[in-house]
Amino acid sequence: MYQPAARPRVQTDAHGPPSDAPPVRTTTTTSRVAGVTLVRVELRSDLAVEMRVRVSNELDGPVLPPRRAGVPSPGWDADGFSGTIPPSGRLGIGYACPAVNDPDRSPGVSADDLGKFSDESPDESSGIPSGNPDASVVSVDLLGPADVDTDERDLVSSAVRTLGRATPPADAVPTETAAAPHPGRSSAESDHDGGADAPLPDPLDAWLDAVETRVEHAERLTDASVPEATAVLDACGGTASVSELPDSLAADRRALRTVAARIDDLAARAAAADPDPVVSALIEAAEGPAVRETPTASPSVEDR
């Protein structure tokens, strides 16, 4: 999508640049999509020669360059892009970065900022304030006129880019680890545990049902219209119970996280523990040797 596309002299500026304008002008725009910042950089050169240029990312995050067949497009590296602008032409590039473009950011990201990123507050529609905040997203360096050189390494990468990798697909054959729902627990064990079909203890079931009801109400009230909200109000039985909903929802969220952590912990410990050999040895010792487990000529006699 954001292929570096060098378009040789697509248009000429009718007015011409002011005499004090820099020879290469940069236009940077950013947009926030699905948790990443998309950065678009347009470079316009008025010089009569092809210029080498270096565009470095200044955001607090890794550069996610455009890729073909898993290989970054030519010119991209971990910190940015190196390429050439055609004489009196334009160069458009774009990349993604998981960091937020914060106009007030200072060098060195603080723990608060990190917390804010991971919390994913749903607003953050980046209302572009005055004084373009995108200007400092990238730094552009002119490296001088371009000279022609091609290296071997590029040939290999471009072969992979244009031809595509022939690696076998990862999921062609299900492996033991891919089949098991939880790492460190084999599929046989999870069958034994019963997975989702195992009945829950009654108090736990009742509590989860109550939480589910509250969450459902909260979901229906999210961005609800008046008739929808009224229906929920009827179902809850008055404003009194609805007024407590935000608080109880927050309490439920904390409780669910705590319970989830405890359940994970216990499940891991239950999976790791293996009392079977010791228990059967103890039973054997208590009942006398070789009473159970004696191979008999007719095993069908034993009632299972």
Binding site: A69, V156, S158, A159, V160, L163, G164, R165
Partner: peptide, 12 residues
């Protein structure tokens, strides 16, 4: 074939 595993040896 014509995939990268055939192309890369030729590139080298």
């Amino acid at each position: 074939g014509m995939k990268a595993d055939a192309g890369v040896p030729l590139a080298v």
